[in-house]
Design a protein around this nucleic acid. Structure first.
Lengths: 124, 124
DNA sequence: CTAACTGTATTATATCACTAATACAGTCCA
DNA sequence: TGGACTGTATTAGTGATATAATACAGTTAG
């Protein structure tokens, strides 16, 4: 069963999008694997303190992207092959790093300075 | 006069927030300096193809943060000292790098791998 | 002076994200 | 079989974002 305990919601971005991204990051980190069971809409709704409709929207997006499968009445499960994992990994990581690079360039920060700042700010 | 030609708006974030951030990045990059003239609300509205009220909201936030000053009837100008520039720089860069670090950690990407990915993806 | 610009304010409308409260039918297990 | 779960759908209401159309008073250059 996938755990959403480490998901901390912020209000500067749609909740459904944060849930989708959390799942994708878990897949990339391999803490979420093929065949795992998703919590039901109602349970996750209660866990996160969020409306069931918002959870449903996130799950619908995950299903449309082929990441989970759902059947009316039955539980929902993660559906992944290694090709899917690599494409999610590439899409997610490269878009996030690409966004930072764009931001740094617009702020006039050099590659060397950005790398050094990241080196210094990274704490385990 | 500050140029907004290089500001490309996307629809995944409020327009007023993108304008505020664009100005802050310009200040950090020193392409925007103390005393510079802001385009009028109406002119920028036409330039960006955005409603005047949206521009006004961005300018109001910039004024509340002490970055520009406005007087009814007169033009608006940038108001900066070196302390303000450093604090904007710190706030902007550290929050953006911090967000990436958090994302990479949630995706199980190591510091070394993240730095190497950034090294490889950065193009001038 | 005056006309054209400036910032500022108001009212109305539309869309999206989210909440709230139900409802219904399919699945599954004791 | 029956009850408790499941996914799915609908209707309604709120707040934020953005658009549209004005209006008004202060500033400034010709």
């Amino acid at each position: 069963m996938i755990s959403f305990e480490k998901l901390i919601l912020n209000d500067s971005e749609p909740i459904y999008a944060q849930i989708v991204r959390f799942v994708k990051r878990g897949i990339v980190a391999e803490t979420i694997q093929d065949g795992e069971e998703m919590p039901s809409r109602r349970v996750l709704s209660a866990t996160l303190g969020v409306n069931p409709n918002t959870i449903q929207k996130a799950y619908r997006i995950l299903e449309e992207e082929g990441i989970i499968r759902s059947h009316a009445g039955a539980k929902s499960f993660v559906q992944l092959d290694s090709a899917a994992v690599s494409s999610i990994r590439a899409e997610l990581i490269e878009s996030e790093i690409g966004a930072l690079i764009g931001a740094m360039q617009q702020s006039g920060v050099s590659k060397e300075e950005a790398l050094s700042l990241m080196q210094r700010l990274w704490k385990e």
